[in-house]
Design a protein around this nucleic acid. Sequence first.
RNA 1: GGGACCGUGGGGUAGCUUGGUAUCCUUGCGGCCUUGGGUGCCGUUGACCUCGGUUCAAAUCCGAGCGGUCCCA
Length: 484
Amino acid sequence: MSGEQELGITESKEHATGEWYAELVQKAKLADYAPMGGFIVTRPRGYAIWERLQNHLDGWFKETGVQNAYFPMFIPESYLEKEKDIVEGFDPEVAWVTKGGYDELEEQLAVRPTSESIITPFLAQWTRSHRDLPIRVNQWCSVVRWEATETKPFFRTKEFLWQEGHTAHHDAEDAWAEMATRLDQYERLYEDVLAMPVLSGRKPEHDKFPGAHTTMSVEALMPDGKSVQGGTSHYLGTSFAEAYDVTYIDEDEEERTAHTTSWGLSWRALGALFMTHSDDQGLVLPPALADPQVAIVPIWDDESKDDVLEYAEDVAEDLEDAGVRVELDDREHRNPGFKYNEWELYGVPLRIEIGSYEVEDDEVTLVHRPDGKEVTEERDGVIETVEEHLDTVFAKLYASAEETLEGEIREAESREEILGTIGQHGGYVKCGWCGDEDCEEPIKDAIAAEIVMVPKDRDEEPIHDECAICGDDAEETAYFAKTY
RNA sequence: GGGACCGUGGGGUAGCUUGGUAUCCUUGCGGCCUUGGGUGCCGUUGACCUCGGUUCAAAUCCGAGCGGUCCCA
């Protein structure tokens, strides 16, 4: 209603997080809702962010022995059924193709909910000797999980984009190390690229990937106190290798079963990113993912127009030559204020204002997106200056995300205390836990919080001697949190 | 899994109680104007979620469906 506000975000992140997020996604042109429930259309502005995230992760994968490949999106039912845990785990949410044209298919095809069951048989085929191992393939693709939940772009959609890596190794030790490597890379992605601190840990037995020996994850805390599972890495033991016959002849001419892993990171990372840094002005992006990284807004009047534009073009060219993604916003009919607001809505980390003042003094005025801080700097050395300021913006983002996590890991020693602490503050609550899923139930039922992780090291002593729920001896430390 | 609210041009809305010509703002497009935080003026395109029912007549009433948001589990 109130005319001028409608171009930007009208909901409050703090007071109406759900609506705010939905509005952010649409107004910043990241995604639209598709005509079928549960699906979204990722718009160029959103997809470009995904592509840049991909580039980082994909580069690291390739540096560490992973090759990309592509497997069919359809999986024959008989393949899916070979590993019984995975059937049970995914059965309720598999989409099936039963017809080709007008003809009923002889064997129905699953739309992949994940690809272990189509990839592992090929790892088996490609693995004869110990010399073939380790083998590592990754694919960037989409998967479909037909859950009947509400759509939240990038957080919950029936189809989502991700990468899934699948590897086979000689023994448990190698496979275990692989799982750790990928988890570290996910952690690095969050911390160094997305400017988000994360926790990493192991999933409790009852929440492991179906068929896995061990599942590890990185968890990020959102400003509303809920945790997001940001990436998972599984050590699958030999269960998949046995089901799909991944064996090799070792040096001693004995046949052995390989140990496999799989690991995935989805565009939920984008959801977490948007949710974490963005504000009531719109999107906020870390420099590594933003395009443009710098928006130059020229400010002219009749007399200064030519000089200002020339000066601004020159600055833009310098930056562009140096590899900075820069956009000179020389649109007519739009005043500077409009442009400021628009680039803020789109999450551009750094704005350069160039008007007659700057031209006269050989300067540029820089404004940081996260906090609106304005600094005037020399025109000379503008490339280094911009790079420094982009680094500063990254540091600001990281620092504020760190503040969100800071102090949000609390302890509790009873059921009531867990409920009270999460109810009041959100965040993580750690407590002693006997290891029994039944002890998670009362917490889940009462406030929909669950055990998001336990320490990676199985031998680590629990923080308390007794399970906070049942009072039996504690086996490990559980981290409870509400989740997305 | 349960409950609540909602669905009108690209976005935001009025109208719905009491059925009859669909309101205003904004965006888009064309033109004029021209810039230090969402300029102003003129012109113009564009909408009642779907299906069914009631009725002479449905955006409005009824039913179902689809979709969205929130809360609880």
